[in-house]
Design a protein around this nucleic acid. Structure first.
Lengths: 205, 205
DNA sequence: GTCTATAACCTGATAGAC
DNA sequence: GTCTATCAGGTTATAGAC
């Protein structure tokens, strides 16, 4: 009896579509991307896109689940770790954010600007609010170890210093600006500096 | 001889369209907004929109020129002032950014994410690069007065700490999150804190 | 200046041949 | 599985009456 191969697709059309979709959606957002653009970028036909994924919305959701799931796992592993200190967590967050987003520089702006992923964004928020990390911040505030009155400031500072450069990377790079290499170099420097900066800021009253 | 009024439009239809367009474009971006939405929001007819502004693209450009021009004037007045110190400029930038964006909280994300305004974004960048502010930063770096090796870090820090919260405001506010009042309160606190934080960061080697 | 009606085009999705 | 052709509905823009 002869075993038959499951699929005989030319060359992973499904994967090509997903990856083209991820690229374009992340770059331009849901409404700006046309299904024809995705098909073209993937090098396949428009009809095939609808054969694999029933609709544009569906394709978008697939891409999102993949993107977010992967990201959330990394972050959850850091903020829920009961063995690391507050300072260690801050450093881990900075390092991991910069590593992840150096590979996907358009993701931050995409997550911030795309209303279609409200649910996913809420999960990120909730994860943080319910984390052991948040507990540690509140304790440090009560004991006077850190000077802020509101934990929101610390969160905004970490995220602002780390993620904002990615959100603005196209603006910074645009003509006469930085090359990709220069930008990445700057972000590598920030890996070392941001934890130190945050520490200095925490002492300011 | 009787003077005749120039226009006899019902009630500033042109202005109503511009302001509706600004609101919607800033909120959702060019492609997501339909001309029908704008007409409806402005309380006028679709045809009238095309009577005043020849096309959607044109209307978008009008809105942008207004938005950016106003913003640029404020910023230019600060960064080109040869009488204020580096520290004073930083404080002025922070205060003015927060005041402007408290009134237009969607603007930062809009400017960052909308590829259609590449030209305007470049002007902002160029204004900064050629400013007296930039000169002062470079001098302070050479004299060792501030510790960074790269002026980009200072710029990213100011802008990241100040503007990022606005770019993320919808995420922060979304269900179970902050109210508008709480958010504004936090931003008022940051007016005072960010200049102090920046000062502390500048000393970190 | 403002409207209704409609033309001209774009876009997501499907039918049907191979 | 993959393609070409095409439909159905949405969207921008214009024609023409008032």
């Amino acid at each position: 009896m002869i075993t038959v191969k499951k699929k005989k697709k030319t060359d992973g059309a499904e994967e090509k579509i997903i990856s083209a979709a991820r690229k374009l959606f992340t770059e331009k957002g849901f409404d700006s991307v046309k299904t024809r653009d995705i098909a073209k970028e993937a090098g396949i036909n428009l009809a095939l896109l609808n054969y694999y994924f029933r609709s544009k919305e569906n394709l978008f959701e697939m891409v999102m689940k993949e993107n977010m799931g992967q990201f959330m796992n990394v972050i959850a592993g850091i903020v829920d770790d009961e063995k690391t200190s507050l300072e260690q967590k801050i450093e881990m967050l900075v390092l991991n954010y910069i590593d992840i987003f150096s590979l996907n520089p358009d993701m931050p702006l995409f997550v911030l600007s795309n209303t279609k992923i409200g649910d996913h964004r809420m999960k990120i928020r909730e994860k943080f609010m319910a984390s052991y990390f948040m507990k540690q911040i509140n304790e440090a505030m009560k004991s006077g170890k850190i000077a802020n009155r509101n934990p929101a400031h610390l969160m905004l500072n970490i995220v602002g210093l780390t993620i904002f450069p990615f959100a603005a990377h196209r603006m910074f790079k645009s003509s006469n600006g930085l090359s990709n290499e220069q930008f990445n170099e700057i972000m590598q420097e920030r890996k070392k500096m941001i934890p130190k900066w945050i520490e200095a800021m925490l002492k300011v009253k």
